[in-house]
């Protein structure tokens, strides 16, 4: 059953009492809060997400609440707990939703049965493009541009590789848009739902793009990693594509770590296998059209000539 299909009053009660159980990246995460404004935002952004039935084992529990009983009335700060531990210092009530978003990222990285890398992932026709890049390079923006042009969102933040076969799992949270990219995506996809803007956060203005329905309903489908593209956005810059060296790609994929260290040999083998088998490119772009066209073109090449895209392993 979908979250949005439960009568609203029942859902609110469940958020307060036992928590609502969401399936994300193959995990079951219990989300609990008694902060009405946050429940409102979750309903807007997560309406299409599948709910896990009744009781069962949670992989993690996320609980957002007022920092103290008094904080409900004055000061208005909230705290988020993951499995009973507070994750950050108390934040302003109007930024509370941001804590939920980070807490969910945290939960997925903390489950080390999967390899989790810092990269955006989108899929088309069963093949996935992985976009590793440091924060602020515009990977979420490209990801938003792709998924509003028919690609399926796997994640704008975390690439989640399943241990069994190294395939990519969907972790399709709403896409985080920052500062200029909010207006950029509004213009690019006028029909998409974008949350009200959270102003004055540590990362400036932030807003969240609701993923296409298709991305949410097909969340159980995994995808095959096929292409690595490291994007850089520069206003007005011409499109430039350069091959990305394999060791460079390895560094980029493992740079911000997430749970790479903890997954040990599985992590190394997965990333090395990925770098062996997927063509990797560095892409700088000045407009979203250019970037989307270029990535679609690269994926089409992989699809047409699968052998060329999987060069012989160069291990000695």
């Amino acid at each position: 059953m979908q979250l949005g299909a439960v009568p609203e009053s029942a859902l609110r009660a469940r958020f307060r009492a036992t928590g609502v159980r969401l399936r994300l990246a193959g995990l079951c995460i219990n989300l609990r809060t008694d902060v009405p404004a946050v429940i409102e935002q979750i309903l807007q952004l997560y309406g299409g997400y599948p709910l896990e039935p009744g009781a069962g084992t949670d992989d993690a529990r996320v609980h957002l609440k007022y920092a103290s009983p008094l904080r409900r009335f004055i000061g208005r700060r909230t705290l988020v707990f993951v499995d009973g531990e507070p994750l950050y210092r108390p934040m302003l009530l109007r930024h509370a939703y941001l804590m939920i978003d980070s807490a969910l990222d945290w939960c997925v990285s903390a489950n080390v049965t999967n390899l989790v890398l810092h990269a955006a992932v989108a899929e088309r026709g069963g093949l996935a493009v992985i976009l590793p890049a440091p924060s602020g390079s515009g990977k979420s923006t490209i990801c938003a541009a792709l998924v509003t042009r028919g690609w399926r969102l796997l994640s704008d933040e975390l690439a989640v590789f399943r241990a069994a076969d190294g395939r990519l799992q969907s972790f399709a949270l709403p896409i985080t848009l920052k500062n200029e990219s909010i207006a950029l995506i509004r213009q690019w996809a006028p029909d998409a739902y974008i949350s009200p803007v959270f102003t004055g956060t540590i990362r400036g203005d932030m807003a969240f793009l609701r993923p296409p329905t298709d991305s949410v309903t097909r969340a159980a489908e995994t995808a095959e990693p096929a292409l690595i593209v490291s994007p850089t956005y520069q206003v007005g810059a011409p499109l430039a594509l350069q091959p990305l060296g394999k060791s460079e790609a390895f560094r980029l994929l493992t740079a911000s770590g997430m749970n790479y260290y903890t997954t040990q040999r599985f992590g190394f083998d997965t990333v090395a296998g990925l770098v062996d088998s997927c063509p990797a490119w560095r892409l700088s772009y000045g407009t979203l059209e250019q970037a989307v066209d270029a990535i679609e073109d690269l994926l089409a090449r992989v699809r047409m000539d699968p052998t060329a895209s999987r060069p012989a392993i160069t291990t000695t």
Binding site: L27, G56, T57, D59, V112
Partner: peptide, 8 residues
Amino acid sequence: AAQRRLAS
């Protein structure tokens, strides 16, 4: 799910 949690 319990097995997964324990494996992690």
